[in-house]
């Protein structure tokens, strides 16, 4: 399946970025073949509505699921509407996008059932 992981860099080996709307970039991975591409987050320096813009970007990449550390209410509403499953990679331990992908494949990551943080601008 096509999965997006929020990252602070430009490759699957870059550090995982725990924020969704304000993540530096998104890594689009095919979880079956392992092939990936990195995409800058257009919302990184948006004045407001980062969650909406980031969600539109992820939807535009054709992702079926996304892994991040936290989802604001606007991101949650947008991703839900787009039918994209939101997975949570909890904890603060430094790790790479590849580490998170491994966790996802191992079924270690739960799905977000609601926005996990208060609205931010």
């Amino acid at each position: 399946m096509k999965l997006v992981i929020s990252i602070a860099g430009d490759s699957l080996q870059s550090p995982f970025d725990a924020r969704f709307g304000r993540a530096a970039a998104f890594c689009l991975v095919d979880s079956d073949t392992g092939s990936w591409t990195a995409h800058a987050n257009p919302a990184l320096e948006a004045a407001g509505g980062a969650g909406v813009q980031a969600a539109q970007c992820v939807a535009g990449l054709g992702a079926q699921a996304v892994v991040s550390g936290a989802y604001g209410p606007k991101a949650y509403a947008s991703l839900s509407a787009a039918g994209i499953a939101m997975h949570l990679a909890p904890g603060n331990a430094p790790r790479t996008g590849a580490d998170v992908l491994a966790q996802f494949k191992a079924g270690e990551l739960s799905q977000a059932q609601a926005a996990t943080q208060d609205g931010r601008h």
């Binding site: 602070a8 550090p15 304000r22 530096a24 990184l44 320096e45 948006a46 004045a47 407001g48 601008h121």
Partner: peptide, 19 residues
């Protein structure tokens, strides 16, 4: 106008530097 946008930019860069 847009000081909110500039504020976000300044803070974002500071945060990335710290990370």
């Amino acid at each position: 106008e847009n000081s909110g946008k500039l504020v976000t930019l300044v803070k974002q860069r500071a945060r990335l530097r710290a990370l």
